[in-house]
Amino acid sequence: MRWIKPLAIGALCLTLTACATSPTGRQQLTLVSDAQLNQMGAQAFEQYQQDLPTVGGATHRYVQCVADAIVGALPPEQQRAQDWQIRVFESDQANAFALPGGYMGVNTGLLRIAETQDQLATVIGHEVGHVLARHANERVSTQTATQLGLSVLSSVSGMQGPAGEQMMGALGLGAQYGVLLPFSRRHESEADIIGLRLMAEAGFDPRESVTLWQNMEAAGGGARPPAWMSTHPSQGQRMAGLQANMDDALARYERARQAGRTPNCPRP
């Protein structure tokens, strides 16, 4: 087992050289090149447009208007760093997504819940937040590091046979609920806060972010898994996080309005 120590040292060095900082100041592990992920994002975005019908006309202009206002409030270097694109997809699911490279999608089902431009800005700001915080890179890197750790542990311990498989299964379950899902919930909460700042800086009313989640809660219904078993925080947790950061967001909103940022995106 002489190879174990060099492998551990190598993994530690890789981890130390792959540390980054998110827009909220949180330390991140990023092992994958942004260029590679951006290319994958572009390919996935193209596939989305082939698989689902897109919506144009006034609906797309409305969504594009909100997205342009948010991206336009970013520093110039962040505007140039991504190929910011957004599409509206015909789907009853109340959902939106962001891909590496700045590619975003909003479903028509979500537009029925986001009743105002400010509520839609909550969603788009959240998705832009995922991109700025490089959450896709962090998720891929965390999963890669976790799988590597489990493989090394299996080799070191010599776990084989049914008992070994059962133990590795338990460890894998622990990694899922103890590492991967919490990271995903952390990403969602962080994107909420970044999005709250972005929408306010673009001149959208940040108080509408809470109203959006109230609408989501009213439209959702049905039983949900406990927050610790979910990839997303509960809606109550999300609203509490937004409220906790509302004073800062309102100050940004007032400065944006004083600077003349007053978006007016007509809802179709």
Rank of each mutant, 00 (worst) to 15 (best):
S91V: 05
A11M: 14
G241P: 08
E90N: 10
A202H: 13
G164S: 13
Q235C: 01
A94T: 07
T144W: 04
F204T: 05
S234V: 00
V152P: 04
M167V: 14
Q39R: 15
P100N: 08
V156E: 09
P6D: 03
R252E: 07
G109L: 09
R2H: 12
R197I: 02
T24F: 07
Q119S: 02
A259W: 10
D192L: 05
A227S: 15
L31H: 06
R261D: 05
Q119M: 15
P162Q: 11
R61G: 08
R87Y: 10
G129S: 02
L29W: 09
E46D: 15
A223L: 13
S154D: 13
V131A: 04
V88I: 04
S157K: 13
Q27D: 11
L31D: 03
A67G: 07
T21G: 05
M246S: 11
T122M: 06
S141V: 03
T15V: 13
N264V: 13
A67R: 07
R139G: 05
L52E: 04
M168K: 05
R61H: 14
V123S: 07
V140E: 03
M168Q: 09
S155E: 12
M239T: 08
L242P: 03
L29T: 06
F97I: 01
I86R: 03
D83T: 14
V71C: 01
T17E: 03
V210T: 12
G222T: 12
Q93C: 00
Q176I: 01
D247Q: 15
F89C: 01
H187L: 02
R186Y: 11
Q78T: 05
L180R: 00
T30Q: 03
A191Q: 00
L120R: 03
N264I: 10
S141H: 02
A96L: 00
P6V: 04
L99G: 01
V210E: 15
V32R: 02
R186F: 10
R139E: 02
Y48H: 11
R185S: 03
Q166D: 14
H126G: 02
A170D: 10
A35N: 12
Q43G: 11
G195D: 01
R186I: 00
I9Y: 06
L153H: 08
Q143M: 07
S189H: 06
R186D: 09
P226F: 13
W228A: 07
E46I: 09
L173I: 11
G203Y: 12
T262R: 15
A200R: 08
A218E: 15
A249N: 01
G129Y: 02
L173K: 12
I194W: 00
T30P: 01
R112Y: 12
A94R: 08
L52S: 09
Q28H: 08
A191V: 04
G109M: 07
W213E: 05
G102R: 01
Q93T: 08
A256M: 09
A73M: 02
A249P: 01
L14K: 00
S234N: 03
L52H: 12
R257D: 09
G203R: 10
G102K: 06
A121P: 11
E138W: 08
L180Q: 04
L171C: 04
A73K: 01
G72E: 00
S22C: 04
I194S: 02
Y62Q: 11
D51I: 14
